[in-house]
Nucleic acid binder design. Structure first.
Lengths: 112, 112
DNA sequence: AGCATCTTCTACGCCGTGTAGAAAATTACG
DNA sequence: CGTAATTTTCTACACGGCGTAGAAGATGCT
């Protein structure tokens, strides 16, 4: 339960890229599409409900920040997918077998 | 584009577990829930459209088989998720850092 | 031809998502 | 303080995916 729609993903990307919390207006401006602020607010509220963003209600304009880094989130997704497989090791093997050489080297280093 | 609904997943699981092609009726019987055969047929048709199952139209009851093994499918999903990240290596590092010891060992063997 | 089986077509309801207006709440400024 | 500007909430609509299945059409058996 953390899959994202297109707009939701765009918003998360903004929040991830800008390390700091953003207001709905700032998000709105920085988006390529020309959307109503209410649209962005709706999306932000939904993302908050999903536990993807944290809202600072104290300051006026509320500020929104990503709960997890993009990395953390991607790793969560990976684990979620892996969780659907009964044969984890086999999947991992196949998966790792398919990564690029440089990535493989990097993994070898990590696995020590 | 290969995410599955609950029923779709159940059906795929059946097809994956039974190595051989199954008819709609067989799928229907082997499902826990007591569904109408037309329901199963609809789902199978949708899975076919998604490229998840192959239908043998030659034989009457049509027979349906999974296009990819569950492993292959899971790996596809993993790559899809990984594709959404700009920092692949960082994600991989973190991801691999979190697997169990036995899995890590298995990976070392594969990369070795 | 008649009957049983199987498939297609069509459809309904629900929920997630993109989209935003109307109205309410808060803040800013003269 | 009162009015205008900003911000947030509430409500809503449309569209597509998915679970669900009946009615009708196609195919095959006897």
């Amino acid at each position: 339960m953390a899959s994202l729609g297109d707009l939701e993903r765009s918003v998360m990307t903004l929040l991830w890229d800008s390390g700091q919390p953003l207001s709905a207006n700032e998000v709105c401006e920085q988006l390529d599409d020309d959307l109503a602020v209410t649209t962005v607010l709706t999306v932000l509220a939904r993302l908050e409900k999903k536990g993807m963003v944290q809202r600072e209600r104290s300051s006026r304009p509320h500020r929104y920040a990503a709960m997890a880094t993009r990395e953390e989130h991607t790793v969560e997704m990976l684990n979620e997918v892996l969780g659907t497989a009964p044969d984890r090791e086999a999947v991992l093997a196949r998966f790792i077998g398919g990564v690029s050489d440089s990535e493989a080297a990097s993994l070898r280093r990590i696995l020590g």
